[in-house]
Design a protein around this nucleic acid. Structure first.
Length: 302
DNA sequence: CGTCAGGTCTCTA
DNA sequence: TAGAGACCTGAC
């Protein structure tokens, strides 16, 4: 039996909210996991590269690696991966070093947020690939959620690299900027990306030119304001898309994407509030709690 | 069948 | 500086 031998990758606060009870070459089992629920993580709208399988597991590709996960209560099985990859990739990807318990505590003083945080308590803000997240949220504009997933998958299947095959089908990595540039606009439109094709190509040009380095956008010495401004120079990237990219791929918890759902929440519960400043340095997490709560409520999942 | 979707761009006053 | 349309496409 192993116990808590993973050093936190960042400055986030220990103690870890899980312990490993078994690790072998193919799977790794975490038990005692707190504030971690696969459904909340993957259905809250931050990620489109993992899907629920017929058997209830979630499977997908992130940063070039395949993973399938299954959860039963506070036990989570990371399958088709190994301990080394868990340490270097998944621990960071799932933000396992961040204390969501303490974060939610900060929100407990306000009734609406407290209720939303309780409902959404399994959410973790993923540390996703910058380029893929950028493309995903460019595709999200004036579009519906099922279709965004289909477009991401079509792009991967057509211009990405084959990785493996599972019960769902063949799995591919998300295409590189160069691959999209080589494909060209007609080919992107053929996949039904519509008017967003030109936006993807503008982003691809800037990325291939080296202007969209993820590390730079994550650099704490770069202000969030500057990072947002830099992203907004990409055609088709406005405040909402830029905020999503920085929150979901750059660990900028202060970013507060305001979409139609959040506008509804703000006008109903926080009249006069139009941005995340009132919610503090973890406004982005508050946003996800409120967003997910509101969307589930509307679709009668609650 | 229309309507509209986790927005952004463009054009107008 | 603000407000209206347009925009690809297909879920619903």
């Amino acid at each position: 039996m192993k116990k808590n031998d993973f050093a936190p990758a960042s400055t986030h606060s220990p103690p870890l909210s899980f312990r490993t009870v078994r690790a072998d070459d193919d799977a790794l089992v975490l038990s005692g996991v707190r504030r971690f629920r696969l459904r909340d993580i993957f259905e809250c709208g931050q990620c489109f590269s993992f899907r629920k399988m017929p058997d209830g597991a979630y499977a997908g590709v992130a940063r070039g690696h395949y993973l399938s996960l299954r959860q039963d209560g506070d036990t989570v099985v990371f399958a088709h991966t190994d301990e080394q990859t868990f340490r270097t990739l998944w621990y960071d990807y799932f933000d396992l070093g961040f204390d969501y318990e303490a974060c939610a505590e900060r929100f407990s003083g306000e009734p609406t947020l407290k209720k939303a945080a309780e409902f959404s308590k399994g959410i973790r803000i993923l540390h996703q690939d910058f380029w893929e997240t950028l493309c995903t949220f460019i595709l999200s504009q004036n579009n519906n959620i099922p279709r965004i997933g289909h477009l991401v998958e079509a792009l991967s299947r057509t211009f990405g690299t084959y990785l493996c095959t599972d019960g769902y089908g063949d799995r591919f990595t998300f295409p590189t900027p160069e691959a999209l540039l080589e494909a060209g606009e007609p080919a992107l439109r053929a996949l039904k990306t519509g008017f967003r094709a030109g936006y993807l190509l503008d982003a691809a040009e800037k990325a291939a030119g080296g202007a969209l380095n993820q590390k730079l956008f994550e650099d704490p010495s770069v202000s969030t304001e500057d990072a947002l401004r830099a992203l907004s120079r990409i055609r088709g990237v406005g405040p909402k898309v830029a905020s999503c990219v920085l929150l979901f791929s750059c660990r900028r918890y202060d970013c507060f994407p305001v979409d139609v759902w959040m506008k509804r929440v703000l006008s109903a519960y926080y009249p006069g509030v139009s941005d995340g400043k009132a919610f503090g340095p973890y406004a982005g997490i508050a946003q996800q709690y409120l967003f997910y709560y509101e969307r589930c409520r509307k679709s009668k999942m609650i």
